[in-house]
Design a protein around this nucleic acid. Structure first.
Lengths: 145, 145
DNA sequence: TTTGTTGTAATCATTTTTATTACAACTAGA
DNA sequence: TCTAGTTGTAATAAAAATGATTACAACAAA
């Protein structure tokens, strides 16, 4: 199954905060309007990003901001903040393989290192992309039009 | 969310077919017993693998077999056969970002190439692992005990 | 004190996964 | 040819995850 839209939503949120930080108070309603997603969903994601120290959210007065340099926030940081993958494992195993079967008994052990390599390759790529890349590309596209 | 256990199940199925091919008729019930998964699920996965040309299943008399050399079947082949990811895209986007917002209008375009790189890295790793690797490791573990 | 906002609980609809029952179609062997 | 075992598939259900929505207390600034 696909990786939850929470991840792409989170990147969208960051892009909005950065683009509009000087001209608007970027509230959950503001972000909901740009993403076309319910404001409560936005607030949940902001809560996860806040817990990971990736955004600051002003209680009461409202508005989100980014407390760190954009090049210090990677896609992997965001992914980890919002994904909540069980055990941090990308691949799901069937629960109770038959331990009386030599294959059933060993399948997890046989696959673990290989699947970990796959997951690592993906996470390495995620960590190579930062919000600074997004900022540049966004600016370019906005200036263009 | 995690990648469906259909993938790890499929690898388990291949390992069983190979290990037991000389001593048993490897039916969906046999595989269900080793994986501890319902035989209908096994038959569905076998159907997907068959459609991809990765296994042969004997209608009527029963039993599955692998028609190709193990080193010619990669994890990516299996992943593609059973995953059925929508559009083949690993990452899910929120549906209707606001096109009146410069960020909403461009977010998909901005992210596409970057997310494709991530997906590609993962798929490249998947394609580097074959059933021959599984056969070796399985044999080793079984002989050991 | 008013106004706008956040954080969060509760509920619901939808989708996806997995399990399960049932049975027609099929094949090999008796 | 009949029987027994198996596959393919439909139908249904249960469980889990996602996302939407309503509601409201807590909060902070003007």
């Amino acid at each position: 199954m696909q990786i939850s839209s929470r991840f792409t939503l989170a990147v969208h949120i960051f892009a909005c905060i950065d683009v509009f930080k000087d001209d608007y108070k970027v509230t959950s309603d503001f972000l909901a309007a740009s993403t076309n997603v319910n404001p409560v969903i936005i607030r949940k994601i902001l809560g996860q990003l806040k817990a990971a120290g990736l955004v600051e959210v002003a209680r009461g007065s409202g508005g989100a901001s980014i407390p760190r340099p954009l090049n210090e926030i990677s896609f992997l940081d965001i992914y980890n903040a919002v994904e909540c993958i069980e055990n941090g494992e990308l691949f799901h195993f069937h629960e109770n393989p038959n331990t009386d079967c030599p294959v059933g008994k060993n399948i997890h052990g046989i696959l673990d290192d290989k699947l970990m390599r796959v997951q690592k390759a993906m996470e390495d790529q995620l960590s190579s992309i930062t919000l600074e890349d997004i900022r540049k590309d966004t600016k370019e596209l906005i200036d263009l039009k």
